[in-house]
Nucleic acid binder design. Structure first.
Length: 305
DNA sequence: TTCTCTGAAAGTTTCTCAGC
DNA sequence: GCTGAGAAACTTTCAGAGAA
């Protein structure tokens, strides 16, 4: 069994466009050539990748699996090609970063914009998949810099990783102004546990500030709807008075300013210390200037509570 | 010889439109 | 609104050409 690059291009083009004819136009081939390629690929794999329905091709579950990988491989290859061109042209390379928390993408754009203007020869690449285990990615050399919660005191002892404190922000509970808890300035973990929770379950996983507070009170959320913070959906649910969510105060600052939600301190206050983790040796020479740029754009003390 | 391509032709399905 | 004819669009198959 041997998959060629042309097969990957074929899969993605048909999946995108829904027909062999359109895919052929995109790939600058004849439809008959693509038909043969597709049949060849299906013969090699021993099954259908696209279901022929009338004049359209619909991807099968098996085809979807392979198409997903084809997209990733082609995207990776395109990145590698672009970076290689930059290197060959004398540019200084790429700064690869990741973050352990999707919420940071709200303040990263101005950092990226400002830093890229000052470093036009260096491309910043956000390695999203490394966010799952950023320190591992750092040790493996897959990234140059990771935005993480915590510092050297929280991480397992490792001489290869260096932490630079960036800022501290407060984790608050958000409710609608119409919610009964909205009249309070402060809530206990057990008050929140009785509510419907909208947000990522890993935000109250064991070891997180919220998870530890819930555990200390001997309670846990029973009605949880997993939603990505980056989608904005948890805040929409809170605004509709359908429950609570917990996130950094600065993240909800626009909604707080418009009085569309109310922020409540949890217990005596839950705090997140954000750091930039970098490799002590062998990393990109640009990490220091990027960290300096992040410090310039960090959430302000008033927004961070 | 093998692989990959093009072009022609056949067959299928959808779209459009006139006629009822 | 329904029906049928013709046009258009599409996939598939086949024969043959060109490159390695």
């Amino acid at each position: 069994m041997r998959l060629d690059l042309r097969h990957l291009h074929l899969l993605v083009a048909i999946d995108d466009l829904g027909s062999l004819h359109a895919a052929a136009r995109r790939l600058h081939l004849s439809a008959s050539a693509l038909s043969l390629q597709l049949r060849d690929l299906e013969d090699r794999l021993g099954g259908q990748l696209f279901e022929r329905r009338w004049r359209r091709l619909h991807v099968t579950p098996a085809g979807r699996r392979l198409t997903h990988t084809a997209r990733a491989v082609l995207a990776d290859l395109a990145r590698a090609e672009a970076e290689t061109r930059l290197l060959l042209a004398g540019h200084t390379g790429t700064l690869r970063i990741t973050t352990a928390c999707m919420q940071t993408y709200h303040w990263l754009p101005p950092v990226l914009e400002s830093w890229s203007r000052a470093h036009p020869d260096t491309q910043v690449s956000i390695v999203g998949e490394a966010g799952v285990a950023p320190l591992d990615a750092l040790r493996d050399g897959a990234i140059d810099l990771a935005l993480v919660v915590g510092d050297a005191g929280d991480a397992p002892s490792d001489d290869r990783v260096q932490f630079t404190p960036l800022f501290r922000d407060e984790l608050v509970a958000l409710v609608s102004p119409r919610h009964p808890l909205a009249r309070r300035r402060q809530v206990r973990a057990r008050d929140l546990a009785a509510e419907a929770y909208w947000g990522a379950p890993d935000s109250f996983a064991p070891g997180t500030p919220l998870g530890d507070t819930l555990a200390a009170d001997g309670v846990s959320f029973t009605r949880v709807t997993p939603l990505a913070y980056a989608s904005g959906a948890p805040l929409e649910m809170v605004r509709a008075n359908l429950g609570v969510t917990v996130c950094p105060r600065w993240f909800a600052e626009p909604d707080l300013a418009r009085r569309e939600v109310v922020a409540l301190r949890i217990g005596g206050g839950l705090w997140l210390d954000w750091s930039a983790a970098t490799a002590r040796a062998g990393g990109s020479p640009h990490t220091a200037s990027f960290i300096a740029e992040m410090k310039r754009h960090r959430p302000t003390p008033s927004a961070a509570g």
